[in-house]
Amino acid sequence: MIIIKTEAEIAMMKASAMLVSKTLAEVAKVLKPGMTTLDIDKLCGTFVRDHKAIPSFLNYRGYPYNVCASVNDVVVHGFPNNNALKEGDIVSVDMGVILNGWHGDHAYTFILGDVPEEVSKLVRVTKESLYKGIEKATAGNRIGDIAYAIQEHTERKNGYGVVRELVGHGLGRSLHEDPQVPNYGKRGTLSKLKENMVLAIEPMINLASKEVYTEDDGWTVRTRDGKPSVHFEHDVCVKKDKALILSDYAIIEAAEQKNLNLNTSYYTAKSLVV
């Protein structure tokens, strides 16, 4: 069942989404080689609790950490660990919070230092594809229009692998609500978008093959060919003329650009559709 939110509920969801954005901005301030993903997990858990909220992921269906920290060929659901991050790693941090009963949930991929041009381009194109999908999140369109826009920009134009097994989703009082939001599909198909639906749109894009597998821990999803994968996610409210983005990458990017350990050369005012 798809749940339409009231304006008051959307305002509360925006507060939840913004807390996720603020937490990811804290990560952007300090992320550097030598840190571990367990350091990130602790930072995020502490920041969320200090702001009177609850980490959504912790103990969700048995997940044992505050965040998913996915490095290089890990697509999503990476377990935080004690391995030191190094120059050339790409790190996707996905997290959620419950604030006043409402979930926020989004993700951002960071680049540590210099990476090959093909990796930098993958990060750029995946981030662009998120906004391409968001452009279609208007009342009267369909979920398939969002899916097609993402697939068109990543797979058809750039030859990347769009993961099939993992999708975006509705968001609200539950972390995962209807409808599912795939990153591939046909225009004019799937559920019709109605004003005040809230969606977590999240392209998960591989450098080469779309094929993935899940490790024995039951969570960690990796590319089958061992090549990098990138994940970006926004919380989006469907509106009549233009989607309302509830989360905020601007504060993450501002912190990211001040951190000399992070590579932000892949994005400019001209390269991203905002």
Rank of each mutant, 00 (worst) to 15 (best):
I90H: 05
G88P: 09
R61L: 12
G96M: 03
D105V: 09
R124A: 04
R61V: 09
K136Q: 11
P55D: 01
E87D: 11
F110D: 05
L85F: 04
A107Y: 01
H153P: 05
N72T: 05
N66P: 02
H103P: 01
V97W: 08
Y148L: 08
H153D: 09
R142M: 08
M95P: 03
V97P: 06
S56K: 06
V71Y: 08
I146F: 14
E117L: 14
S56N: 04
M95F: 13
I134A: 07
H77E: 02
L112N: 07
I143L: 01
D94H: 14
Q151A: 06
K132Y: 15
V125P: 03
V119W: 09
E117K: 15
Y65T: 07
N100I: 07
D94R: 12
D105S: 13
G96L: 05
V119L: 13
V91L: 04
C68W: 12
F79P: 11
I98M: 09
P64E: 04
W102G: 11
V123Y: 11
E135M: 13
N59H: 14
A107E: 11
E135Y: 10
Y60S: 11
L99P: 09
S129P: 06
V93C: 03
G62L: 14
A137Q: 00
V75K: 03
Y60T: 07
V115K: 06
V76E: 10
F79G: 06
L122Y: 06
L130M: 07
G104W: 08
G104N: 13
Y60K: 08
E155Q: 14
A107F: 08
N83H: 11
W102D: 06
I134Q: 10
G78L: 02
I98T: 13
H106L: 15
I146P: 04
L58K: 11
T154P: 09
L99F: 06
I134G: 12
Y108T: 07
N72I: 07
D145I: 03
D145P: 04
I54V: 15
P64R: 05
G133A: 13
G104V: 13
D89V: 00
R124V: 03
V75T: 13
I54F: 15
R124G: 15
D94E: 14
D114N: 15
N59L: 13
I111Y: 11
N72K: 13
E128G: 12
E87I: 03
R124Q: 12
Q151P: 12
D89R: 06
A147D: 00
F110L: 00
F57K: 14
E135F: 13
I146Y: 10
R142Y: 11
I143G: 04
I146D: 01
N82E: 02
L112H: 06
N72F: 10
R61H: 12
A147H: 05
S56P: 01
K132R: 14
F57L: 15
S56H: 06
V75P: 09
H103I: 04
R142F: 10
